[in-house]
């Protein structure tokens, strides 16, 4: 029982990281209608920036996190302006290939700057754990902080999108770009802000993920990126609560599958569940139904 609980908690913790990444994916998809494959690599860049601040510059962890958020925000805006904005009228396949090119570019740039050897990332969160149930159940501080951070991010993002003026602009643009523009919404600015927020979230996710799983390589971000995208589709792409639910469920499924069925097949479980969900509910758990029009 305690074994199960401890697995469940590490699942929720991993799922929280997926959820934060998935939030970025889902917002970008909702507004720009594109699969941003480079999102996973922004996570990796965020983790490297934090690593550099802590090791090479000797800055305190909080500054490292803020710096990586700042760099990733800029990076996100830059990627959107340089690579995606010129392709807004292009076919979705062209945009997808560009995003893949961007992903290769970031990975190889990181490899040139930091080398291909894995770096061991030391956690930004104090090591140690909370002991419960007479010493049987241990919850590491990393898990607790990760889960708390994802809840905070989720609430803040919901409030921002639901209440603020920029949030309303985002919802308008995601609904109908042309109509939003006619109503005086600055579409370019809105899309830039979306990319900025998504990338800042990716930076947080990168730092949290590398605190829990401390190997940092240029390809660190790609698999979590794909899984987070899966989580976003799972929860219903374009929906913020959906990304959160999808991310956490996916993390739990992955950890439980690894623990109880086969450690080799953890990823296969994640993808099998995704396929099942899409067959039963083709728009994801919390996605809106799309009416097919002639």
């Amino acid at each position: 029982m305690t074994m199960f609980l401890s697995n469940l908690i590490s699942g929720i913790s991993l799922g929280s990281v997926y959820a934060i990444i998935a939030l970025g994916y889902t917002m970008v998809y909702g507004i720009a209608k594109m699969l941003n494959f480079a999102h996973g690599d922004v996570i990796m860049v965020g983790a490297y920036i934090c690593f550099c601040c802590l090791y090479n510059l000797g800055l305190p962890p909080a500054v490292g996190v803020l710096a990586s958020m700042a760099v990733c925000t800029l990076l996100g805006i830059l990627i959107e302006r340089l690579a995606y904005k010129p392709l807004r009228q292009a076919t979705s396949l062209a945009v997808l290939i560009t995003a893949i090119g961007m992903s290769y570019f970031l990975q190889n740039l990181a490899q040139m700057i930091w080398g291909a050897n894995p770096k061991s990332f030391q956690t930004v969160i104090p090591a140690g754990s909370l002991t419960l149930m007479g010493g049987e159940l241990k919850i590491s501080y990393v898990s607790m902080v990760t889960i708390a951070a994802s809840v905070v991010v989720m609430v803040a993002l919901s409030l921002f999108v639901g209440r603020s003026k920029m949030g309303r602009a985002m919802r308008c643009v995601s609904e109908d770009k042309g109509a939003a523009q006619l109503m005086g919404v600055n579409v370019d600015l809105t899309i830039s802000v979306t990319f900025a927020i998504g990338s800042a979230l990716a930076a947080i996710a990168g730092v949290l993920m590398c605190s829990a799983y401390p190997t940092l390589k240029p390809t660190t971000g790609s698999m979590p990126g794909i899984k987070a995208f899966t989580a976003a589709v799972f929860g219903g792409i374009g929906s913020i609560p959906g990304a959160m639910v999808g991310g956490i469920l996916l993390g739990v499924i992955e950890i439980l599958g690894r623990a109880y069925v086969s450690s080799e097949l953890g990823d296969a479980f994640v993808f099998a569940v995704l396929i099942l969900v899409l067959l039963v509910r083709p728009t994801g758990l919390l996605g809106k139904k799309i009416q097919e029009k002639v």
Partner: peptide, 12 residues
Amino acid sequence: AVVLIAVMLLTN
């Protein structure tokens, strides 16, 4: 990677 992005941007 750069060639890939450049080709996509130029052809579109």
